[in-house]
Each structure stands twice: as structure tokens, then as C-alpha cells.
Amino acid sequence: MIPIKRGRDIEAMRRSCRVVTEVIEKIKQVLAPGITTAEVDQYAAHVIQSYGAKSAFLGYRGFPGNICISINEEVVHGIGGKRKICYGDLVKLDVGIVLDGWIGDTAKTYPVGTVDVEDLRLMEVTSTALMVGIAQARVGNRVGDISSAIERYVLEQGFQVVKDFVGHGVGRKLHEEPPIPNFGKAGHGPKLKEGMILAIEPMVNRGTAKVVILQDGWTAVTEDRQRSAHFEHTVLVTKKGPEILTLLEKDIELDCCIH
């Protein structure tokens, strides 16, 4: 059963998503050479608390961090620790919060200083793939339409989508139905209906799509240790088209390209 949100539930999700968007924007400001990922995680905890929210990740299935912070070859689920951020790194922040019982979930990839042209292209392709997928989040379409659009675009650009992790429905719970792979066949999967809220999140690798899990049991890295990028938005399916709930006010005009 895929949850359908209406009325006050949607407004509550808009609030939680607005907060998580502001939170990730504040966290990115401390990303600099020399800071440890543990220090970033602790700062994130402070920012989340300042909004009267809680981390949706801390303790989830035993996860020990307040956010996921993953660097370069780390694809997702990186845990704050002793690793220091260096000039030229790609840093992925995946942030989830709980506000008044509702989840806000978003992820972005940030370059620290100057990165090479292929890294910039990796980020651009991943971000664009997210928007390409979101454009398919329309009443009457199917989950496979989102998945297929993302995969097709990424492959056309010469990169690979990670298949071990997928997007998901989101609301009262961090992970709700339906799962949203970043690969698949158009016209397949559950039909999208008004009021569904989806966390769409392509993870894209420069090299192989294969990943391995480190000894901490959480951190996923690319098998060939090439770099990866990750972007995520929480999206409401409406009669008028997809509404991105995790956009900043200054970025709202970007939403027009998917209607």
C-alpha cells in the first residue's frame, strides 16, 4: 500500500522539507579543507536541533550518524569520523529530519575548492538526471517511467547509475512504498497518484556501477574507487505536475522546467 497524503499532511511535509533544505544549506557552509567529517556531523546535529527537529537517520537500523557524509569514492551512508575533508574533494551530504512527526529528506554533492572537469560534469549529469526523473513524477505515469528516464540519461552521458540503492516513498516513515530504482523499464511498476510523496535520488559513478560496503557495515564505496555523486529531492505528485518540496525559495523558478 502506497500512502497518499492530503490536506494537513501535505502542509506538514512542506514544512519538514523546507526545514531540511535550510539545514543542508547551513551545513554546506562549514565544508572546508581540514575539517573532519565527525565535526561536520556534530555541526549538523546542532543545526537540526536549532529548528526543533530531530535527525531521521540517527539510530535508524542502528546508523550512528546524524547525517550521511560521503567523500569522493564513498557513494552513500558515510559516517562522520576522523577523515578530513581535503581541497578538491566531492562531498555528499544526505540529510533527513523529523519535524512534528514528518520526514524531510534531501541530498546534494558539493565540490570543495576546485575539482577537475570530469567531476564537475559528473555532478551536473547527476543533478540533471534527478530533474529528468522528477519530470516523470506525474499522475498516471508509473515508477518505471522515473527509473527509465534517469538511467537512460545517465548512460547517454557516459556514466553509470548505482543499482544497489534506490529512492523511496517518504512521509511519517523515512522509507515508505514504493521503492524508486534509478534504472528500469518505462511503463512498469506502480501507477503514480495524486498525493504520493517520493524521495527521488540518483547516485551516479564515473566508473563501474558496482559498490562494496566497508567494514563499518554502512559506508558504500565504488568498487573501482572512482568518484560518485548523489542528489535527492522530495517530490509531491499533483494534478498540475510534480512539486519539488526541497527547493529553496531562490530556486523555485527551476521548478518551472518540469511542468
Rank of each mutant, 00 (worst) to 15 (best):
E73V: 11
G171L: 13
I10Y: 13
E249I: 11
K84N: 01
S70M: 10
T106Q: 11
E201K: 07
A135E: 12
R152E: 10
M203T: 03
G140V: 05
A45V: 09
Y51M: 09
Q157C: 15
G34P: 07
M1W: 02
D89E: 09
A32D: 00
G104L: 07
I24Y: 12
Y153E: 08
R15A: 05
I150L: 14
V166T: 14
I197Y: 13
V170N: 02
L93R: 04
N72G: 11
L90Q: 09
D105L: 06
F165T: 13
L58P: 12
K240Q: 14
A53Q: 09
I252H: 13
I69P: 10
F183Q: 04
A38V: 01
I69N: 00
V237P: 13
A199I: 01
Q157G: 09
V221P: 12
Y60A: 11
G241H: 02
P64E: 07
V23G: 00
R142M: 10
K173G: 14
L155E: 14
G189R: 04
N72A: 01
M196D: 06
T36F: 03
L90M: 05
I150A: 08
D224Q: 13
V221C: 13
P190V: 04
I258D: 05
P64D: 06
R225C: 02
L90C: 10
R61Q: 02
I27H: 11
D224L: 06
V75D: 00
I134R: 07
S127C: 12
V112Y: 02
L31W: 00
P3A: 00
R14L: 12
E243F: 13
V162D: 15
H168P: 07
A53H: 08
M123W: 11
G96E: 01
R142K: 12
K250P: 09
G34V: 08
R18I: 12
V95K: 12
V115W: 07
V75S: 09
T106I: 15
E124A: 15
V95C: 04
L99F: 00
N66W: 14
I103G: 00
T114E: 15
P33T: 02
Q136A: 13
I180C: 08
I27E: 09
A135H: 09
G158C: 08
L214P: 11
G88V: 05
D100H: 05
L122I: 12
A209E: 11
E201M: 12
L236T: 12
H77S: 06
E194T: 14
R18F: 03
N182W: 04
Y51P: 00
A56R: 01
D119E: 13
G207V: 01
R206V: 14
V98F: 10
V162P: 04
A56Y: 04
V211N: 07
R83D: 05
S147F: 14
D89I: 09
R14F: 05
F231G: 07
R14K: 13
A229K: 06
N72T: 09
E156C: 03
G133N: 05
G207M: 06
V221Q: 03
V170M: 02
L58M: 06
D164R: 15
